[in-house]
Nucleic acid binder design. Structure first.
Length: 770
DNA sequence: AAGTAAATTTTTTTT
DNA sequence: AAATTTACTT
């Protein structure tokens, strides 16, 4: 079989250009997965490259799996030496490298290191904070963790972070201190957090020539997918791996860069030609996925971004139907609309796959409830994953301890769960003895058992009991994975504790643990995968790995949808403050990232795209009036069909004579959207006033909503209505989110870039319009 | 030490 | 509104 005939000319070049650096700028839906799969197959079958010489890095394990499947399918019937290339995520690649070679770093890490996920690492930060005597109210563990992670992703050590001047964050010195002991403790626990996986892998490659040469010789052909979302460390890794050869092929799309907040550095892709001087660049601009209208609308939105090279996607697909728009009275109505439409589409085409995309996971609940009520089977991606459930995490902590008893986070997690009589007093004593003798908590337990000092007999026997459990598990680590998992569930007393609870919830937890055993059994069959790999997998599975391509309805965040496609897509909750998210509202760059996210979401759609928003929404149990997203405003009206009942925002926006849409040539540069936008105070007030008049006439939609926005009288303090921008002497520019009270008691909730939300009394805050 | 009641917080996106 | 944390009882 030849691997070229069903490719377009550009795709073909991308497959054939195997030697030397290659940059593939692949627009949404331009068949990049196809190209990568064909390229790998071509390397193997035509170029005769041995499979172990190929490394392909994808964003998720699922994507790697999918790639493997497609390559295998292409190679069916080919006579080839067996073996599949290394297909993995950056993080699992680093784990594989480190499990081999971390000891060469001489940093007291052993090959049996533990991986700390977000939750573990947050716990460790919390420990550090409390040991330093810092107030968690002032230094939120999560934000400290984020600051540390950001610094690590920039390649900074604790010392460098402390020295790093710049903007004066009063918390900086304290965070640096936390950072320092956080790192110390990771090392003491023989643990690596997600960032460390990359950092240590880069370090070992950089430091040790032998290791570097080993991997340079091994990976002669390297492919990186989603290159626009790689960060500094991932780039460093690529550089080190391509020191000898330059057969590096990267694929990406600047318009789909949505992980800047996680340290992704777009200049990696923009400067690729600089980094690899002889690079060839190929643009894939033909879209095979979506209808013309969907592409037009998505393009019109992303065109509002300034920081953009700009490219033109085209398609020979049919024009398709207009994008459908719906304004719902509330989140419940929004979900009901989506469910009803899915059912309608099913009548047309019984097996149509649908996706509901939202900005935040918290939005999923209403959709789940409605889907269940109307009897639509759905698959949910993200949110609370299987491995994040408490009981599953607890059992995994037992297993981690069996392999690495110095892991104090795992120890703290399970030492008294299920309850076995080890309380605060005992824990304090363990901590004291550990510090006194400079040993781990695990070793401190043995010290206490030998020489109890202050503790009573009951506590000592509880500790002995616990130590015995872990030691016994330790004897099983070489055996079958499912056996030790079963032992952990049973010997820890977890099963009995749940059984004696005798509730439905406990029953569910038991079933989850049975699932864990089932998952472990898969590892029994594999020769070179054991407990270690099982636990690594649990830490490194991504949310997207829960995606089931056969599911009829999938609920997930817009982020998780990257790389996927569906005939029928709903983008819900398109409201200012939600999508774009309020945390991104005041920063132009962040707003542009939100817009790209919206673009990614829209370009998932193959045939039908629906965009919806609500006019009021519950947040923390409080009902808040919400306003339509500015992204809705950026969609060309002629491509939108309004399905709302009664008067919709769209109806007002488009129906008003004030609107003067300045439309230029479709693909020429166009001035920023000049239509009526709702990002000014007056227009929002106007919109809601119009609504009130209309609903007053007896429209059924949201007839009695007394949200704060609706109460805004344009004549009184009209400057500071929700949606308007203000300037604060200290915090700078901010977006007004909420308005409460009147006169002197007028309180405003304002979100400021870098400072979060603040409640301000207008009388004292000295706000100016911005 | 463990269970219950009260208070407090939570929501960005994720390897 | 729900979940988690803390305070208070036994």
């Amino acid at each position: 079989m030849d691997f070229l005939s069903d490719l377009n000319p550009e795709q073909r070049v991308a497959v054939e250009h195997t030697e030397g650096p290659l940059l593939i700028l692949a627009g949404a839906g331009s068949g990049k997965t196809r190209v990568i799969a064909h390229r790998i197959a071509y390397l193997l079958a035509v170029k005769g490259v041995p499979s172990w010489n190929i490394l392909a890095v994808t964003f998720t394990n699922k994507a790697a799996q999918e790639m493997r499947r497609r390559v295998q399918e292409l190679l069916r019937g080919e006579q080839l030496a067996p073996g599949i290339p290394w297909l993995s995520t950056f993080h699992s690649l680093c784990v594989r490298i480190l499990r081999q070679d971390i000891e060469r770093l001489n940093q007291n890490y052993s090959r049996s290191f533990t991986i700390y996920d977000q939750d573990d690492s947050a716990r460790l930060v919390r420990n550090c904070l409390s040991d330093l005597g810092y107030d968690e109210q002032k230094l939120a563990p999560r934000s400290v963790q984020a600051a540390i992670s950001n610094a690590k992703n920039r390649g900074q050590s604790a010392v460098a972070y402390a020295a790093g001047a710049g903007y004066e964050d009063p918390r900086r010195a304290s965070i640096a201190k936390v950072f320092e002991i956080y790192e110390e403790r990771l090392r003491a626990n023989n643990a690596l957090d997600f960032d460390d996986l990359l950092i240590k892998a880069v370090r070992v490659l950089r430091k040790d020539r032998e290791v570097r040469e080993k991997y340079n010789n091994k990976f002669r052909y390297i492919l990186v997918d989603e290159y626009q979302d790689t960060n500094m460390l991932q780039f460093a890794l690529i550089r080190l791996l391509t020191e000898q050869q330059q057969n590096i092929c990267v694929v990406g799309d600047e318009d789909q860069s949505i992980y800047k907040w996680r340290g992704a550095d777009i200049s990696n892709i923009l400067d690729f030609e600089k980094h690899f001087p002889n690079a060839k660049t190929i643009r894939l601009e033909q879209n095979y996925r979506s209808t013309q209208v969907i592409l037009d609308v998505a393009g019109a939105v992303v065109q509002n971004n300034i920081a953009r090279k700009g490219k033109t996607l085209w398609t020979s697909n049919p024009k398709g139907e207009r994008v459908r728009y719906y304004q719902a009275p509330d989140a419940e109505g929004e979900a009901r609309f989506v469910a009803a439409k899915i059912i309608e589409h099913r009548d047309e085409q019984y097996d149509i796959r649908a996706a509901v995309l939202y900005r935040t996971n918290a939005q999923s609940r209403v959709f789940e409830e409605v889907m269940r009520r109307v009897g639509l089977a759905y698959n949910i991606v993200g949110g609370f994953s299987f491995y994040e459930r408490k009981e599953v995490r607890d059992i995994i902590a037992y297993l981690k301890l069996a392999l690495n008893p110095t892991d104090s986070i795992a120890l703290a997690r399970v030492i008294n769960s299920p309850p076995r009589g080890i309380g605060k007093r005992t824990l304090d004593e363990i901590d004291r003895r550990a510090k006194e003798n400079g040993v781990s908590h695990w070793q401190a337990i043995s010290l206490i058992i030998e020489k109890p000092e202050t503790l009573n007999r009951a506590a000592i026997s509880a500790l002995k009991n616990f130590r015995q459990i872990i030691l016994r598990l330790g004897e099983l680590v070489e055996g079958q994975v499912s056996e030790i998992v079963k032992a952990a569930i049973l010997d820890s007393g977890y099963e009995n504790a749940l059984k004696s609870e005798n509730t439905e919830e406990a029953q569910g937890r038991l079933e989850n643990l049975q699932e864990l055993v089932n998952a472990a059994m898969d590892y029994d069959k594999l020769d070179d995968e054991g407990l270690r790999e099982f636990i690594d997998h649990a830490a490194l599975v991504s949310d997207q790995d829960q995606y089931n391509p056969d599911a009829q309805v999938t609920l997930m965040t817009a982020h998780s949808a990257k790389g996927l496609e569906f005939p029928l897509v709903f983008i819900v909750g398109l409201e200012n403050g939600l999508f774009p998210h309020s945390r991104a509202a005041t920063d132009v760059e962040e707003l542009e990232e939100e817009r790209r996210l919206c673009y990614v979401a829209m370009t998932r759609a193959q045939q039908y795209l629906y965009v919806t928003h609500t006019i009021k929404r519950r947040i923390y149990g409080r009902e808040i009036a919400s306003e339509p997203s500015l992204f809705l405003n950026e969609m060309p009206p002629e491509s939108i069909e309004d399905l709302s009942l009664g008067g919709s925002w769209l109806y007002h926006a488009r129906g008003s004579s004030k609107i003067n849409l300045e439309r230029g040539e479709p693909h020429k540069e166009r001035k920023k959207f000049a239509g009526k936008t709702y990002d000014s105070a007056e227009s929002i007030a106007e919109f809601f006033n119009q609504r009130r008049e209309q609903t007053g006439r007896g429209s059924s939609v949201g007839a009695r909503s007394h949200g704060p926005v609706n109460s805004s009288d344009p004549n009184a303090g009209s400057e500071f209505v929700p949606g308007s921008y203000v300037r604060h002497a200290k915090y700078g520019k901010g977006l007004v989110l909420r308005r409460e009270g009147e006169g002197d008691a007028l309180k405003l909730t304002v979100t400021f870039a870098g400072y979060g939300q603040k409640k301000l009394i207008q009388k004292y805050a000295g706000l100016k319009p911005a």
